[in-house]
Computed example of a mutant assay.
Amino acid sequence: MKLGLSILGGLALVFVGIQFVPNELPAVEMNNPGDIIQSGIVSQEVSGLLKTSCYSCHSNETIYPWYSYVAPSSWLVAKDVREGREELNFSTWQENDMVKKLGFLDDISSEVGEGRMPMEIYTFMHPSAKLTDEQRDLIVTWAEDTMDVVVEEEEGLEEDLDPEG
């Protein structure tokens, strides 16, 4: 009994102690004029799905739940958000060139279509982010169709810049 209380007390001290280990969550920015949704290439339905299932890791508009402020889960949340934004940040969409945008759309199509995104650990903690097969299909179709739109936009820009066009 005494040993069990000592172990429990030790664990409690460790838990309290790790709260003082510095951990900085990536900054939240709600004003993102270069956001993909601001670009006009996302339907309202797909926009809602992206906001619900993708934006907490893949945008500057992260909504941090309570456990994001408690170590050790805060360390995992910060790592996942940093890595998610590095892979794809919807908030900086318009800063990317055509090739990058096409790559992102291809990745979205395969990652969402094959069920790798959103990640299971995320949907376990955020059940509203779980996508139905129909929602997955909608995002995949949008991503594939949008590849053509991105190419057409680029061609249109080139024609506008061509003095002989």
Rank of each mutant, 00 (worst) to 15 (best):
I41H: 09
K2V: 14
E114K: 13
D162C: 03
W75H: 11
R85K: 04
L88G: 03
I37V: 13
L25G: 01
M117L: 09
E152A: 14
T52W: 02
Q38W: 09
E95R: 13
I7A: 11
M30C: 01
W66L: 11
M30I: 05
W75N: 07
D107S: 15
R82M: 09
P127T: 04
F104R: 10
Q19F: 08
P33V: 06
D35M: 05
L49Q: 02
T52A: 00
L3M: 11
R116C: 05
M119H: 11
V70P: 00
E144D: 02
G115I: 04
L131I: 03
E83F: 08
T141G: 01
E83A: 12
F104S: 13
V81K: 00
A71G: 04
E134L: 05
P163W: 10
G34M: 14
A143G: 05
S53H: 00
Q38A: 13
D160W: 14
N96F: 04
A78M: 01
L76H: 11
I63S: 10
E86N: 14
K79I: 06
S6R: 15
S53A: 05
G34D: 15
V149A: 10
S6T: 15
I37L: 11
D160Y: 13
E29V: 02
G84F: 05
E155C: 09
G113T: 06
M119T: 08
E87W: 01
E45K: 10
R116T: 13
D162Y: 08
W66R: 11
F124A: 14
V150P: 06
I18Q: 10
Q94S: 14
Y67P: 01
Y122R: 06
C57W: 03
M119N: 11
T52E: 02
R82N: 08
F104E: 14
H126K: 13
N31Y: 03
L11H: 07
E83C: 04
R82Y: 09
E155V: 13
T62R: 01
R85I: 00
E29D: 10
T146M: 07
D162V: 05
R136M: 03
E87P: 00
S43I: 04
I18H: 04
V77G: 04
Y122K: 05
L157Q: 14
D106Q: 15
V16Y: 08
L11S: 11
G4C: 10
E134R: 06
L102A: 02
L161V: 07
I37E: 09
V28Q: 02
L138W: 02
L13R: 12
Y67T: 09
E153L: 15
V46N: 03
E87S: 10
D145T: 06
E159H: 15
